[in-house]
């Protein structure tokens, strides 16, 4: 937890909106990325906005121990799950990915030479395959492999045990490999 963040949070608690805006700018890509993978392109921005609004309204409940990163991640995941429960929400699979803009950066350290060889098209295939995972598996995979959270941070964010994180991550990777193998067989 950065000391600067604690100062910003304290200022934001006292109604200093520009201080909260600094936190938003620091975490907007992370929150949007999570929402984008969890909900798809249509609801991602609304869910990300709602996540920050919830955080702002509940700043008094924030405690420094998990840190702002884990806290806002948990809020974002819960917001996405709320969106999923809405009857109007459409499943991610089958939605067009056209027109999406994304950064070719990776939060997790050391993707290795194999990953460096993956073309943009391959990255899009992976994004599509991640979108086809079940919500539970996708949440763990997005947090651990795409956002680079530790098992402990992911467990805090999702409110599940470390053991569950490990088993879901294993299953998510197996499923992803199966989906990508299936996709590539048909190219």
């Amino acid at each position: 937890m950065l000391q600067d963040e604690l100062i910003l949070i304290e200022k934001a608690r006292q109604g200093d909106a520009p201080a909260f805006e600094e936190l938003v700018i620091a975490y907007q890509d992370k929150v949007f990325n999570i929402c984008r993978y969890m909900l798809g392109p249509d609801d991602a921005e609304d869910a990300a906005q709602d996540s920050f609004v919830k955080a702002y309204k509940n700043l008094d409940r924030f405690t420094p121990s998990p840190g702002f990163s884990a806290w806002i991640t948990r809020i974002a995941i819960n917001t996405c799950l709320d969106y999923k429960r809405k009857p109007s929400h459409l499943p991610l699979a089958g939605k067009s990915q056209d027109g999406d803009e994304y950064e070719h950066e990776h939060a997790s350290p050391g993707p290795g030479p194999e990953a460096m060889l993956l073309s943009k098209q391959s990255a899009e295939e992976v994004a599509l395959a991640v979108g086809r995972l079940s919500d539970k598996l996708r949440a763990v995979l997005v947090l651990c492999d795409i956002e680079g959270l530790s098992y402990t941070e992911a467990a805090d964010a999702l409110g599940i045990s470390m053991g569950t994180i490990k088993s879901r991550l294993s299953r998510a990777r197996e499923e992803l490999r199966r989906l990508l193998g299936h996709t590539r067989e048909h190219i």
Binding site: V24, F32, A44, V53, H106, L118, D145, A172, L176, L180
Partner: peptide, 25 residues
């Protein structure tokens, strides 16, 4: 699979995201 997952793109927040959010707040 882990290498593949880590090669997945990261989506950046759309332009004007923070401005729209702060207006709402």
């Amino acid at each position: 699979a882990s290498v593949l997952a880590r090669s997945a793109p990261r989506f950046a927040a759309p332009k004007g995201f923070s401005t729209r959010l702060m207006r709402e707040i």
